[in-house]
Amino acid sequence: MKYIVTFVWALMLTQMVNFILNSLAGGGPYSFMSGVLLAVLITLTVFVLDYMMKDPNETAE
């Protein structure tokens, strides 16, 4: 569930940043897919960092 929430937040924030930067650059055609790809990349990065930072001696609860 936490990765779904991470993806939703990443999607919203990257779309906002994508729109603002596109507007500052002259307002050409808006690319929705570039924000989606960046959101997927951010979510995968969070997933990998979470996996790497777990303690191997930690027991499952």
Rank of each mutant, 00 (worst) to 15 (best):
V36N: 02
N57P: 00
L37M: 11
M1W: 09
T14G: 00
K2D: 11
I4E: 07
T14D: 08
V40N: 05
N18I: 01
Y30R: 13
G27K: 11
G35W: 07
T45S: 13
S34K: 07
P29G: 10
D55E: 07
G28C: 09
F19L: 14
I42P: 01
M1Q: 06
M33G: 05
Q15V: 01
Y51D: 10
A10R: 01
T14Y: 10
D55Q: 06
V5Y: 09
L49M: 12
I4W: 07
L38Q: 07
D55S: 10
E58I: 03
L49Q: 12
F32P: 03
T14M: 14
I4A: 14
V36Q: 03
G28R: 11
I20T: 11
D50F: 02
L24A: 14
V5N: 08
A25K: 08
N18Y: 03
L41K: 08
Y30D: 02
Y30P: 00
G28N: 12
F32R: 06
M33C: 05
V17M: 10
T6H: 04
N57K: 15
P56L: 06
M16R: 03
I42L: 15
T14W: 12
M52N: 07
L24H: 02
M16Y: 09
I4R: 02
A25R: 13
N22D: 12
A39H: 05
Y51V: 10
K54S: 07
N18A: 06
P29V: 08
E58V: 04
T59Q: 13
W9P: 00
M1D: 13
G35S: 07
N22L: 13
E58P: 00
T14R: 05
V17L: 14
M53E: 09
A25V: 03
Q15M: 14
F47D: 01
N18H: 05
A25C: 03
T43H: 05
N57G: 03
N57Q: 14
A25F: 11
V48G: 03
Q15W: 05
